[in-house]
Design a protein around this nucleic acid. Structure first.
Lengths: 219, 219
DNA sequence: TGTACATCAGTGAACGCGCGTTCACTGATGTAC
DNA sequence: TGTACATCAGTGAACGCGCGTTCACTGATGTAC
């Protein structure tokens, strides 16, 4: 049995009233340590390996310890998913900042950021959108970050509408759902290994065909 | 323990050299009976309940019996997925036939058929695209039906191109991938409960925004 | 036509596994006095 | 400043479960002679 060493809680992510120094018995910031462990497992071993026992093992605590901080397995899955949405938003933001000021290019960058995140973190992507949580509505903060993600797409579309590049009469929310569907679908197909073609190539193509052609006035 | 009764093999789906009459010991057409059982489980109890043991139980045979016909669990999962693609194609075909002769309308009907199938058979959809099979390339017939499905989209787009309704200079395969991505993404988001809006409404909307706007000439 | 036999689709029991979760407990902490 | 004590985050063992898969076997089939 490999020995898992308890890890220093990360500064800056410490919970409000957590004690300063870790010790042998009381962990210091076990919730964060458990989340870190879960993220590490998802990244290195995939979705199937993400069990509560494995998380506890990697965090260096007994298998019962997580129950002090998470009601059940679903709850830690939701926490992982939530973290995933934050990473996804960061990836999209980064992708946008790396491109210029043209609204349409920025919208497209959002989409490419989305696909890039999905293909770079396939297991995390699966947890975010998989059936792990029977009922997503039981996790309001998860719903919140998911809708924040969609809001980024909406904002990019509003910018395009203001610049007269996209049909203004269509609600930005509707167009955003359309855009989200296409990048999400491409991501899912790539992540599940349904497509043979290289991710970067098809991401360029789909965003070109769709985002650039999105709602362009007919006739 | 509820008693599962062995079932008459369906006429017309019987394998070439299967014996005519079922009997107590030799089943008659166990492979088909197992597939039927698996489909029933997926439909009524969902993806999680689809275990080899449950399949054997419902087919009325011992838990070891399936191994005469399927190498392992992955193999029966692949068979279920393959059946799903055939049903999906049937749904798309039906949706197309119910609409007129206008190529763009037909293309859109393909998309709506896709989303309708997904939301009507969410568990089946999950098996088709889920991570159940570690390596899809190990199941060539599954790959085949999946690419047949895509071929239906390609064909619909070629018709649109011939009618001058969609950019002819873009390869139909590329446009088809774009279209597939959008309906697949919408389906996935609906199936996983990420969206609140009614499926039919958003299916109409996304296919309108995308398919009708797909590659319309700029300028 | 009758029979020995090879074939192989089934059986039933078992292996080994790891999971989520619960429970009575113990040890460290910080606070009230 | 010192101490009793309530609090609660941890422990370690156990429960009960169902899974995928294997194995030696048995019973029905159809064919060769």
């Amino acid at each position: 049995v490999p020995q898992a060493e308890p890890r220093e809680p990360q500064a800056g992510r410490r919970r409000p009233h957590a004690p300063r120094r870790p010790n042998r018995y009381h962990h210091g910031d076990l919730p964060q340590a458990l989340l870190d462990a879960a993220l590490r497992i998802v990244k290195t071993q995939g979705t199937e390996a993400l069990t509560l026992r494995a998380v506890a093992r990697l965090a260096g605590v007994s298998q019962a310890a997580p129950y002090r901080h998470f009601a059940n397995k679903e709850a830690i899955l939701a926490a992982v998913a939530e973290d995933g949405f934050r990473s996804l938003m960061a990836a999209m933001r980064e992708s946008v900042q790396a491109c210029g000021d043209i609204p349409l290019a920025r919208l497209r960058a959002v989409g490419i950021g989305y696909v890039t995140f999905a293909t770079s973190h396939p297991s995390h992507f699966r947890v975010m959108f998989g059936r792990g949580m029977a009922d997503r509505s039981a996790f309001p903060t998860l719903r919140q970050v998911a809708s924040d993600t969609l809001a980024m797409v909406v904002a990019a579309i509003v910018d395009c509408q203001r610049a007269g590049l996209v049909r203004p009469e269509e609600p930005a929310e509707d167009l955003a759902l359309t855009a989200w569907s296409s990048v999400h679908g491409l991501s899912a197909l790539l992540v599940e290994g349904v497509l043979d073609r290289p991710a970067a190539e098809v991401a360029e193509m789909v965003t070109r065909d769709l985002f650039l052609g999105l709602g362009v006035r007919q006739g």
